[in-house]
């Protein structure tokens, strides 16, 4: 019988090996040239260099209007990084769409869990608002994105941005609301603003590209901070005068066009490790 134990030793070793290999995590999938979850896209909001403060009439435009911001919500989409090797890497997570509510810190930080190559990137680009192909009614059934819906009769889809303001100038006894809302514009026959006379729509989302110096390394984390300089919406190449649009912007393509021209210079970007 002694040979049984002796042969048993050679039998037990494979069994223990089996125990080991059957229970350990399979790391083979992690052997890849790509790095996952290595960037966090953060959204910050400034007014003339200082962090945006809500509900206080402390800011002023170049045209002499004082204003306060009560709500700031917007979409960015088709976010992509451009590598020095000449390739664009589109963010695939969440279809490349991100909703930001400046009051909600959770929504101001987007941990992108895409696989990205450990390369050097020289620019980041995105669409402000939803890309025209993505801007379809019903895409977001749930809040908070749902509450950005843009009426079908005005073109459908979603607001690019809702910035709810109050403003006042020296001739006004009190501040007045202003809804700085961007989305699909309408073309009205003979200039009559009546939904029955709409003859066409204008997407109004626009692309922004910003230079960066980002060297992604395997295992490293980098933060891409997209900084919206809120004051530039009003003080860009087209000074925005609130009094000019007493009926709001949603049905005024000229107002939205003016805002968009400023909007292309609203963002700056920073990289932190």
């Amino acid at each position: 019988m002694s040979h049984i134990f002796a042969s048993g030793k050679t039998f037990i070793l494979p069994i223990l090996l089996l125990v080991f290999i059957s229970c350990v995590k399979d790391h083979s999938l992690e052997i890849t040239p790509y790095t996952q979850g290595s960037i966090i896209i953060s959204y910050s909001h400034k007014v003339k260099g200082e962090t945006l403060k809500f509900d206080t009439l402390r800011y002023s435009t170049s045209t002499g209007n004082r204003y306060q911001v009560s709500d700031l919500q917007y979409f960015t989409s088709r976010i992509s990084l451009h590598s020095l090797k000449g390739k664009w890497h589109d963010i695939k997570m969440d279809d490349g769409i991100h909703y930001t509510d400046a009051r909600d810190s959770y929504s101001c930080s987007w941990w992108v869990k895409d696989l990205l190559p450990p390369e050097s990137f020289d620019s980041v680009a995105f669409i402000f608002g939803l890309d025209a192909l993505q801007n379809t009614t019903g895409r977001f059934p749930d809040p908070p994105e749902r509450d950005m819906f843009w009426p079908d009769i005005l073109g459908g889809g979603y607001h690019s941005m809702k910035m709810n303001l109050k403003w006042q100038n020296d001739t006004m006894p009190q501040s007045m609301p202003f809804m700085f809302h961007l989305g699909t514009g309408q073309v009205y026959a003979s200039g009559i603003v009546n939904p029955d006379s709409i003859i066409g729509y204008v997407p109004n989302s626009f692309r922004i590209s910003l230079p960066i110096g980002l060297d992604l390394t395997a295992g490293g984390y980098h933060q891409v901070i997209l900084e919206m300089n809120v004051d530039r919406w009003f003080d860009g190449q087209n000074a925005f005068e609130f009094a000019r649009y007493p009926s709001g912007m949603m049905q005024n393509q000229e107002a939205m066009f003016r805002a968009i021209r400023n909007g292309k210079k609203v963002f700056t970007v920073k990289i932190t490790n």
Partner: peptide
């Protein structure tokens, strides 16, 4: 419907929903 859903009409939809929000409230 047009008045309910337009800024230059009654502008009810921003608080009360509409074709994009059939609850007819944002609950805000």
């Amino acid at each position: 419907y047009v008045l309910f859903m337009t800024e230059q009409g009654g502008d009810c939809f921003h608080c009360h929903g509409g074709d994009g929000n059939p609850l007819f409230t944002t609950n805000l």
